[in-house]
């Protein structure tokens, strides 16, 4: 029976098998390969965002004018502050995660527990902040008119701040009074196929036109970015003309269909990319919690290594890494 096992003469050599050229365990390597594929997914999204932005390069919303809110500080325009806070939270939770991995290498169970705990808290704060950011964006703040061509007309006045003439957006609600509107309700008892209807918008375009007429200081701002990198403000006559001829409906806030800050594509990509990232953070938190309890009940203590913490750590850092890019391309550039 000596023919079943053939001696190839390569035992102990590189091609003899049994060696690990990458000096990395199976699990860690598979996590790296997953991260590679996930990184390509995210870069696909971000590159698609870049594509659409290049397509509308002179019409794209300016992120600093969109994300200006900070919780508890109502009515103040503070661009970047909240998102910088979110970024810092995520980096901080990355640090506690890597400290947990480090403590795991030294087999210090209690330290791993505490650092994992702080990581989970950081992740939860981040997801909560993102939910708040979404809610604020969906709700919107000033309202605008969408034109027949799908463009956005915003309203504002020139104000003197520190001796400088600055254009400030004003809320449509501040200068327009809604007229009385009624419409025939379609009901299924009337013999029609019952069709669902959207609620009537708060203002009709003619309401807004009348409001604009009676407030001589209010001007329209278009989506077009001028030479100075600011949105173009129309003259008084052009403002009235634009709303009268091209106005189609009143919009407030942002959703997948309309966006009071500019092109709906901006909102679509914002929801899709930050949503997909937020989902990663959420699943990261869930996986972290599972590992956290495993650490507490001593699974890895008995296994005599904390590599599982390291693997989930890799995923968590990756989520942080993606956020660094989302932060740059959505809020900075």
């Amino acid at each position: 029976m000596d023919s079943t096992v053939v001696s190839t003469g390569t035992e102990g050599k590189t091609w003899g098998g049994g060696n690990q050229p990458l000096k990395s365990s199976y699990g860690k390597m598979m996590m790296w390969f997953f991260i590679v594929s996930d990184a390509l997914t995210f870069s696909g999204f971000l590159a698609a965002y870049g594509f659409s932005r290049f397509k509308f390069i002179d019409y794209w919303p300016i992120a600093d004018e969109v994300f200006t809110h900070v919780p508890f500080l109502h009515g103040q325009e503070l661009p970047m502050i909240y998102v910088a806070f979110m970024t810092f939270i995520l980096i901080m939770s990355s640090v506690t995660m890597v400290l947990a991995v480090d403590a795991g290498h030294e087999m210090k169970k209690n330290k791993v527990i505490w650092y994992m705990f702080f990581t989970i808290i950081g992740g939860a704060i981040f997801v909560g902040s993102q939910a708040w950011e979404w809610a604020t964006f969906i709700q919107g703040d000033y309202g605008a008119v969408q034109t027949k061509g799908g463009n956005i007309l915003q309203f504002g006045t020139y104000k003197t701040i520190d001796g400088e003439e600055v254009f400030k957006r004003i809320s449509v609600e501040d200068f327009v009074t809604a007229s009385h509107k009624e419409r025939e309700q379609h009901e299924n008892k009337n013999g029609l196929w019952f069709v669902e209807e959207d609620p009537l918008p708060a203002f009709s375009v003619s309401d807004i036109y009348h409001g604009l007429e009676s407030h001589p200081d209010v001007l329209v701002r278009t989506q077009t970015i001028n030479e100075e990198g600011e949105k173009t403000v129309l003259s008084r006559a052009a403002s009235l003309e634009q709303v009268k001829n091209n106005g189609r409906r009143y919009v407030k806030g942002a959703n997948l269909e309309v966006n009071e800050y500019g092109t709906p594509l901006f909102a679509d990509f914002f929801f899709f990319i930050t949503g997909f990232h937020g989902f990663h953070v959420l699943s990261g938190v869930v996986i972290n919690i599972i590992i956290f309890f495993n650490v507490i009940i001593g699974t890895y203590e008995r296994r005599k290594n904390y590599e599982m913490v390291e693997k989930v750590g890799l995923y968590w850092h990756f989520v942080d890494l993606v956020w660094v890019f989302v932060f740059t391309f959505f809020y900075l550039v």
Binding site: P21, K23, S94, H317, L321
Partner: peptide, 12 residues
């Protein structure tokens, strides 16, 4: 982040 948090520096 990749080199120090994800320990890429220590990999082969």
């Amino acid at each position: 982040i990749t080199w120090d948090f994800m320990h890429m520096r220590d990999e082969t």
